[in-house]
Amino acid sequence: MDQEGQWVAETLRGDQHAFANLVDAYKVAVYNLCYRMLGSASEAEDAAQETFVRVYTHLRAYNPQQKFSSWILAIAAHYCIDHLRRQRLKWLSLDEALPLSPLAGDPEQPENAAMERESCLEIRNLLQSLPAEYRLVIALRYWQDLSYAEIAQVVGTTESAIKSRLHRARQMLAERVIAQRRLETPWGQQLQQGKRVINNAVL
């Protein structure tokens, strides 16, 4: 039996240390996936914790034939997609007169300061522009370095579906990058400035 299988068996026998080993082994992968999906450190922390609580309570349902990493990432992915769906419903049901504070991020998070490098912010914005299902495949491909087959297992779909989702996601991101670059050209800057003038005049 491999190391993970042993830890799983020991956890099922009630050994808390074995479970702590499992958490240590997967916390970065799970947290990173949640962070890329949700785009906020505090939400990612909550989501990652909830994922491990679910892993603990559903450990008996784990099929040892499956890769443990795929199983645990699938739980995290489902949780994040559910969370985003709930959030969207909540936003839809809220009064539109509310201030748009969530866009400001969460500055009270201390580790946020270190995370908020410019490239990190840019990546966050890029990822958040994608639909959740596309963001998921991008996160699994780039940070988890999974093959198409492994991503398909985590997402619970076929390899060809993953192939097309990755393609669509990359295409959407590329379109955004191209549009952004256009704005950075002298003509684009003038266009931006023009928009600002109009905005100032109207608002």
Partner: peptide, 12 residues
């Protein structure tokens, strides 16, 4: 090039 994001040290 973007590094993996890590949780706080007392996560476990």
């Amino acid at each position: 090039a973007e590094p993996v994001a890590a949780p706080k040290p007392d996560f476990t």
